[in-house]
Design a protein around this nucleic acid. Structure first.
Lengths: 206, 206, 206, 206
DNA sequence: CATGAATGAGTATTCATTCAT
DNA sequence: GATGAATGAATACTCATTCAT
């Protein structure tokens, strides 16, 4: 609200939406979805309450926009990898790396998303609408399905031994998340990728 | 509410507290911590709102009491196992089983607890107080520390190959949780225990 | 909040709800439904915001309770009159009087209700829910239907000349409302009843 | 928005204002004053929000302009009729017809206007400013005054029997509105005019 | 003149907690 | 000890209006 007096400059014009998204990212990441208040977001974005509702229909849609924006590149990269002609083992490692990279960037946002989307009982624990929750659950499911597809391919080609691919896919996914959330990532990501792959491939036995 | 007129009997007095805990278990499990309301709990417990606050200082402490009560037996069993003279491999499998059994019983309650305690950013995502969150994180940490101890013992005795025991302990824990939350548990738990152990020990390579 | 320090006396206990209803009557009558704010109601009722929501599920239901309470006696009296064995002309006058009396008491409340329920275009102009609007429209319809029934009876018995009873019933109703809203009511209601009846029965021609 | 680039041509300039008025008519009629939003009006008018405020000082004045525009012809016709040399009975019927025609055209707009202007308590129920409300109440008053004048003339000439002309004028007006709002109008308006006149003149007695 | 991004005052509703009886 | 009426802080969202371009 300082520079161009009322922020109508073309720079700022585009920036308002960005300011809000940036502030929202910040607040959602720190506070989680429910405890993030629109008031705090606008304070940080240095904007009026109405402005938020000009760009986003409601708090939920603001959050979803954030998720969409940050998740898009990953979705594309994953699709590319899946459809590539790599060998199972190579694909396997590449997917691990992709997921790792995705979750390392914007770690806090994904943490919050997963927090909201995770483990539902009969009712909806989440503060997000049932609809939204299901949408993102499907998103995660899709990733896991792809992991499973790679595992199956490996089993078919006898690179991996027979297993319950569904179980292993979920476990692999949870292992990756654990590594990220516990901040077990090495500076050189390749090392972490290697460690995870090694663990999953060979286990811990001598 | 008839016999002893206002619940002055020791039976009823104790039972009031139990009724509340039972109802709280039910509601927390179904709704999660945040969406569980004291109103719903007292409706189910068939008691007055004030009564809850006679036995428990607040909603959070009610939840914590529940967690304490249901977690106690496990903590004891775990300690016993750790200090037992079993061989590393046996200990390893027994711990997997212990954790599995714990989380299968009261699955929803643990789901909720983990939901609240999981991966915090700088601020506290949770609806629980920072203090409480840390307490339960320590609780989980303690379990994981014990798992790690077993792993170390195995490495020392060359039953397991050298590894980052911390990482593996966390991963093992997350794998177990995943199996439970995804309801991948076989009717015969031993099978699941075997599968997890096999996966962690030998990986997926042929 | 003065007398018994915190208003928990049995007198006051019952009175809280009444205080709120009284205040709501006041504010709704003066401001209309939309412009009446819960804040103003609680200020007048000298109560907390939560208290209102203990007794009434929302602003609309508070308003409806008011309408119900004040309208009940009339509905009963009307039903009695309709089913009575009076001659058409007597019934006719008695109904006029009943409606007049109803609308004179609580004139402002009915004014507001009619304001909300009146003349809808395609959409719902009202601030009340569609459901509620229809409920009260039905209520008014019911009154008019009864008026019409009396007219029909009169026509059958050749006391009244043939007419479109529906049109006349509506017109009679609107005439009564007009008299009330314009405060054309004489101190002795009988005079007003007589005037209306005379006008409707004989018209204005010499 | 193409030809004269920014609407500088007198054609377009005038048309912008007309577009807005047309759209406003539409939205006000469908939604009522309160629920009509400027946003919806500009969407329909295919214009910018600022433009509305170039031509009209605010939402209220936009509404008033609309009312003015549509009411003008009627006011003139009414004045003509009043000052004409017709016999009381003819004048009486002509006025009924005039009012009927006025309210049939733009029925929804008048419905909305009356909705806002009707029966005020101590405070202003309306969403319009007290000032505006009074202005239009005066407008209606003026019509009624004219009706009353005709009635008085009839009484003086002994065509009508003695009566409270004020009361009857109001009642006649409310009867006409009722016929319009209940859509009791026959295809041939003359029939409705005749019915109303007959009812008011002769009443319903045999 | 036309535009539309920015604004913020105004409001209904929820729910944990208290405390007099 | 048991009760439940009373409470109010906290929060998302709407929409008329302004003003720099």
């Amino acid at each position: 609200m300082n520079q161009t007096q009322a922020g109508h400059g073309t720079d700022e014009a585009k920036s308002k939406r960005q300011q809000i998204l940036k502030a929202a990212y910040d607040v959602f990441s720190r506070k989680g979805y429910y405890r993030a208040t629109v008031d705090e977001i606008i304070a940080l974005a240095d904007t009026g309450k109405g402005t938020v509702y000009n760009y986003f229909t409601n708090k939920e849609q603001l959050f979803c926009t954030l998720v969409q924006e940050r998740g898009e590149p990953f979705a594309i990269a994953l699709a590319d990898t899946i459809s590539s002609e790599l060998l199972p083992m190579e694909k396997f490692k590449k997917i691990i790396k992709l997921i790792l990279v995705l979750y390392i960037e914007d770690a806090d946002l994904w943490r919050v998303l997963i927090h909201e989307v995770r483990g539902l009982g009969e009712d909806n624990h989440s503060n997000l609408s049932q609809e939204t929750v299901m949408k993102y659950q499907d998103g995660f499911q899709h990733i896991i399905d792809n992991v499973e597809a790679v595992l199956k391919e490996g089993v078919d080609k006898a690179v991996f031994r027979p297993m319950n691919t569904t179980h292993v896919a979920y476990c692999l996914f949870s292992i990756i998340l654990t590594m990220v959330y516990q901040k077990f990532i090495e500076d050189d990501i390749e090392i972490t990728v290697h460690n995870i792959a090694e663990f999953v491939l060979r286990g811990i036995t001598t």
